[in-house]
């Protein structure tokens, strides 16, 4: 979720194959974008949801392209 211009939670443990969804509860549009720009949800408007599927090589650090001070991190668990 995105609320009050923060990613909630800002650290999230995920497994390969999981789908991560962001629903924007703010008035302002946001994105979830890898810091290295390797993935990007594109614009997420108010009350809209966008998602990505976790891959083993997914870049874990991400931010909002529109509000670069909004940052968060994924912890990717790779099953043996």
């Amino acid at each position: 979720m995105i609320a009050r211009l923060t990613f909630v939670p800002d650290r999230l443990r995920v497994r390969v194959g999981d789908r991560i969804s962001w629903t924007n509860r703010d008035i302002a549009p946001h994105t979830a974008t890898a810091l290295d720009r390797s993935w990007d949800t594109g614009r997420i408007d108010k009350d809209e949801t966008k998602s990505i599927v976790v891959t083993a090589d997914l870049s874990p650090a991400y931010f909002c392209r529109f509000h670069p001070n909004m940052k968060a991190h994924l912890e990717i668990v790779v099953d043996d």
């Binding site: 009050r4 211009l5 008035i27 670069p68 001070n69």
Partner: peptide, 16 residues
């Protein structure tokens, strides 16, 4: 109140 939260982020962005 919701607008102010956005505009405070703008203020930080502007400082950057």
């Amino acid at each position: 109140e919701a607008g102010l939260e956005i505009f405070k982020v703008h203020e930080n962005h502007a400082a950057m």
